[in-house]
Design a protein around this nucleic acid. Structure first.
Lengths: 353, 353
DNA sequence: CTGAAAGCGCTTACAG
DNA sequence: CTGAAAGCGCTTACAG
């Protein structure tokens, strides 16, 4: 294992300077600091005392943390499972709390005694992931695709299955198929929209902007959505709801309004874990095993950290998703079902738009 | 902060011996080893290199890990929240993987650079919690009560609310009230059973053994349970289901069998988070905010670790639970509803038993 | 099985 | 802002 002396000579500075960089002393000049960080990352340096060199890998939220979502819970389960097969321990790090503003990510991670990181992306933090990868610190991004080289990631490949989901609705006879998307443009939602587009394009249809709904990714937002679109003009007869929380809110709200699923409205949801099986009626869904994302990310990270030559390991892994057809999809009603805000149910005939 | 020299003189040995104990060298004699561990815990020793003494607190499963349960997810969320208010970072440790058999828990934690631990109890690991507390290592048990002094714990106080839940059923007119319990005897399930007993006792009823069901704590087990008890003789008209996963399986299975809730069968569940609001009909439940358990545990642990005199801090915290009456409880049917294995519905008259 | 002492990795007051 | 050197905490080969 590289020690402070190796790093010093690699960077062409004294060991005192390396130590100062590792402890983020303000006195070190910018250019010297970045030379040292680069050398440390290249050599795979980690501070150590005798044998007790740290052997922590970290799970890092690049944005606000959200441990209570089913997605994150499944990630953790998979990470914990993979961890048991390695010699590493797991740390949970929150750079937002105590990374110093003038500190690079590598410095922060090294100061915490961490050897590699799994980056949990949230909206608007792709830049953070890129910055960390660029610094050369061992990292694997979980849940997002990247075009840039030299960035490792593991993501759920939902495009083809999303297409398949919409094709399923088309084959049932639906022509007014809505899609819900989150407010943020991440690669997951881009993929799901693209699957929707492709399925429609294959049968010569243009996506209709009025059938594309942007909603925050919470359960109450799913309920709101259903109220809004079923009371408006020209509602869809089927919905592809691309978020696991939103679909739960939506299905329950529909039933509260007396809308029968799938007779009045077909719904295809998205499931990160096992939720589809705990719903009644059982949910037709694009399924992803989020625990597998966690498992694969941690395994990959362990390989990278343990590798002789880290740059030789490149991880770009697409974990398959799959479609499960259950009880929330069926043929469309003769005409779209509307429910007015006062609860009146209107089954209108198709009209010009 | 105590260093290896202080510990050595406190224990009356050389620094070499202290170091050997910390690294679990086999050569050190049993009695010397335990003297050193005791001294280290008394002084709050943690290995350090200069300033970078470790500042990790750990979340430790005393049994098999289960991150994907809603309970654990909520715990993590609360722990993460409390963590942000401290100077500590979080580690996840699995003693089952790499604690050496001949190593004490304190030695293991110190070797990992951890300053204090939150112990997640599972069935049959109360002994582990007691052993760790006895060694004097800073620890807080989450989710269990203890009678022994000198053990810190934070638990959900579900006895009074469980009693209230059963009283609610009694006030609706139910006389055949069943209860489901997990297979293991932990303090949580003991409390819930005791609440059930007390509510029945207050109106002069003995609990009937045939209405007390032991089931594993998984969703499919809830479905099995409903099949079993509704097809058997003398089914209950109301059920208090003391596990969040079991109740979901049970409610959905009941509906699959055509049993109307609450008209045919009333159900009171248990909710660690927000699941009751995502069910249709909305679940009447004994509610506990598991994230609060996590929050309080971590806050308490941080206080203990930071205290001048650790033994002066004693944590024995009962977090309140509460009853929310929603849509799964109502008056009992005229007579208990039975559904035979072939799907035939039998509404039998009350009979002698 | 244990200690005295040499040595390692890192940090920091001092000097420029 | 950086280095040479003293010093700290810990580990370990050597000796008994």
């Amino acid at each position: 294992m590289a020690n402070i002396r190796t790093v010093a000579s690699e960077a062409g500075v004294s060991i005192a300077t390396v130590s100062r960089v590792m402890n983020n002393h303000a006195s070190v000049g910018r250019s010297v600091r970045s030379k040292v960080v680069t050398a440390a990352n290249r050599l795979g340096y980690a501070p150590s005392v005798g044998k007790r060199s740290t052997s922590y890998l970290a799970f890092v939220y690049t944005g606000p943390s959200s441990f209570n979502s089913p997605y994150d819970a499944m990630l953790m389960a998979g990470i914990a499972e993979a961890l048991d097969e390695t010699e590493f321990d797991l740390a949970i790090l929150n750079p937002q709390r105590d990374k110093k503003p003038d500190e690079s990510y590598s410095q922060f991670f090294l100061r915490k005694g961490v050897r590699g990181v799994i980056l949990r992306t949230t909206s608007g933090t792709r830049g953070v992931c890129l910055a960390i990868a660029e610094e050369g610190f061992p990292s694997v991004v979980i849940g997002s695709r990247f075009d840039q080289p030299d960035i490792n990631y593991v993501y759920g490949d939902s495009l083809p299955t999303s297409k398949q989901a919409v094709e399923h609705l088309i084959s049932l006879g639906h022509t007014r198929i809505g899609i819900t998307l989150s407010l943020v443009e991440d690669s997951d939602h881009t993929d799901r929209l693209e699957g929707y587009r492709q399925a429609l394009a294959d049968c010569g249809t243009e996506p209709e902007p009025r059938l594309m709904y942007r909603v925050p990714a919470q359960r109450p937002d799913g309920a709101q959505l259903i109220k809004r679109i079923l009371s408006g003009p020209h509602p869809p007869t089927a919905l592809f709801i691309t978020d696991p929380a939103v679909v739960i809110g939506a299905v329950n709200q529909a039933r509260r309004m007396g809308v029968v699923i799938p007779e009045d409205l077909s719904i295809i949801g998205f499931d990160d874990g096992d939720d589809r099986n705990d719903m009644y009626p059982q949910l037709t869904a694009v399924c992803q095993d989020a625990s597998q994302l966690g498992y694969e990310s941690l395994s990959a990270l362990a390989r990278i950290v343990s590798a002789k030559d880290r740059d030789s390991v490149s991880v770009r892994l697409a974990v398959p998703t799959w479609l499960e057809v259950h009880d929330t999809t069926g043929p469309p009603p003769d005409s779209p079902v509307r429910v007015l805000p006062d609860g009146t149910r209107v089954q209108q005939q198709e009209q010009d738009t």
